[in-house]
Nucleic acid binder design. Structure first.
Lengths: 187, 187
DNA sequence: ATCTTCATGTAATAAGTTACATGATTAA
DNA sequence: TTAATCATGTAACTTATTACATGAAGAT
């Protein structure tokens, strides 16, 4: 087994979510709140993060010297804007260039139910598949909403977020189509 | 927000992994070891479980009266075969027929890297996509290996495991195809 | 003989969610 | 004036992984 986290020299190894946050700070300085919005508005379909992870992780990244806090104020209001440091950029690049094992996991309770559907009536199996399809179709709609923003970034020279988004749309379209086929199969 | 777990009357609510285990015991009595094998050999691509979850969960299911242990012996060796009880079957059916929220999550570090690939050279982005494709192709091969077993179950009247498996193969084929297209895009 | 599979479990740790608490600013 | 958005954080809890320990049975 290989090490599962990137560790450059000393200090606590960087967790996968830490890398995600660092990556988002790679393109712009952000507050914890901004990071949560960015996660939800772009990488959420393959990588989620809650405030309960983000704020503590930002502190860990800071004490590891990978980000620095530029405590700005907006109005009279406290606001901590984090930006990536040179060391942070190095760590990020090192991760992106490494050949470490990539975790890929899926947890889909809809498929779990589908798998066990021999135990229930056709109607119940059908209801489950319909719910799955509705979910994937909703995902496609949500992803399409962020398409314009992604196109802007692409035209500004950052094409990967756009390509990733298109991949996500395709993925959920394929899953929705599979559900539709299963609905026919069960009818 | 709705309750996230199925709770029939009193006792500890049943966790998602508990439901997965109960579902597997729905078709045959099994040991903890058998359950691990069954998970790895069928539902793993959308629902994983480790021994560290399985053995404690079996005890919880037992004290909730949803499974019973028929302590069999094979050779001179200790062996705990669990089987589902009538109450367990009720709980399983109730879950399969309920309209509770279905958790669907994905964590894909390859896509995370891809998303951030504007920060690295074309070569590094390409290496990452190739690794992703290799992974999905390996998944397709592994799933195809269990196809015969699945066909047998289908011919014996349990068709959903087969349909689920075909869905998984399609899913990973689609992802591999997307990777191939991205490789072209980057060349 | 020795390797693989069968078999059971726990302890430490890591990762992540949910609920809660608090309050300012901005748009309608 | 009221709702939405911006903003920060923690505590309790749940969930899951990893590493370890142990050993018999069956195959080569």
């Amino acid at each position: 087994m290989e090490r599962q986290s990137t560790n450059d020299g000393a200090g606590t190894p960087l967790s996968a979510t830490g890398r995600a946050i660092l990556g988002l700070l790679g393109s712009a300085p952000r507050t914890g709140y901004d990071i949560k919005s960015a996660v939800d508005g772009s990488i959420r379909f393959f990588w989620a993060a809650s405030y309960g992870q983000i704020y503590p992780e930002l502190k860990r990244l800071e004490s590891a010297g990978l980000v620095r806090v530029a405590s700005a104020e907006k109005g009279g209001r406290r606001r901590s804007v984090y930006e990536i440091t040179a060391a942070g950029r190095d760590a990020l690049q090192a991760w992106l260039a490494s050949d470490a094992e990539l975790t890929t996991e899926m947890r889909d309770e809809g498929l779990l139910r589908f798998f066990f559907s021999d135990l229930v009536d056709r109607e119940e199996a059908l209801a489950n598949v319909r719910a799955m399809r509705a979910h994937h179709e909703a995902m496609v709609r949500r992803l399409r909403e962020i398409e314009p923003k992604s196109i802007q970034a692409r035209d500004a020279g950052r094409r990967f977020p756009y390509l990733t988004l298109m991949g996500g749309i395709e993925l959920h379209e394929q899953r929705a189509a599979w559900c539709a086929r299963m609905e026919k199969e069960l009818s």
